[in-house]
Amino acid sequence: MKTSINQKGFLIDGTKCIGCRGCQVACKQWNELPAEKTEFFGGPGYQNPAHLSSKTYTLIKYREVMKDGKLKGWVFHKDQCQHCLEPACVSACIVGALEKTASGPVVWEDKKCIGCRYCMLACPFNVPAFEWSSINPDIRKCTLCSDRIENGLEPSCAKACPTKAIIFGDRNSLIKIARNRLKSESAKYHQHIYGEEEAGGTCILNISSIPLEDFGYPKNLPKTAMASFTQPALRSIPGAVIGLGAALGLIAFIANMVKGDEKDSSGQGDRS
């Protein structure tokens, strides 16, 4: 699964984004997502709605760039599922309802879901969202329009973007494009491709004039897949059980043989 050459993804270039939110609208249209009642909030961001949700799979985030106490400008960035190469949510899902497809998208089968929400906790980007007011709630998130990709179309947000801030393509060639841009216009960009290595690498590659962390993306993400933190514990289970079983048996045998000789004169069964 590592960095298979066929995996599709986006290069999201924040410097090209004009904040029109055409991608947001296209996403809602394609996925038939309802509007959301929102409240304007004053903190950093100002975007509306404030977060991804079960009704909003993608979102343009706004940030003010200040210099010497003065507003220097605005930057925008598109938030969405990063479609990790080895997704934390897929490893976390108790029933395997979430699945990493060979071509890149992380999709889910809602019939399997039991609603434990471990995927939401596990996701370092806080992407999976839950239907909090539903009787039969689903987990929801961006699918990279895997249904469109299967039919040879590009994802609706990339299709809608008027400035080519979102380009859809093979991950490896997108990395090359991103590197070229960082190099040829080095003053314009913060010199980092967010997603190339974060959490083991993601299909979504992000470049911007400011660090993605300033948009609220997680800081200090490990370069290994998140699942690598839980795997050692899980892989130790058979050994631990067998070892513990043998040790307990041995101890119980020795202890009870010694004590049993002296003590068990009651002749009674010892059941509980």
């Binding site: 490893s91 976390a92 108790i94 029933v95 395997g96 309802a97 434990c116 471990y118 795997q231 899980l234």
Partner: peptide
């Protein structure tokens, strides 16, 4: 579902 659908990579499992 936990009895039918297995995901050994999940601690929750």
């Amino acid at each position: 579902h936990i009895i039918v659908f297995w995901n050994r990579d999940s601690v929750m499992f």
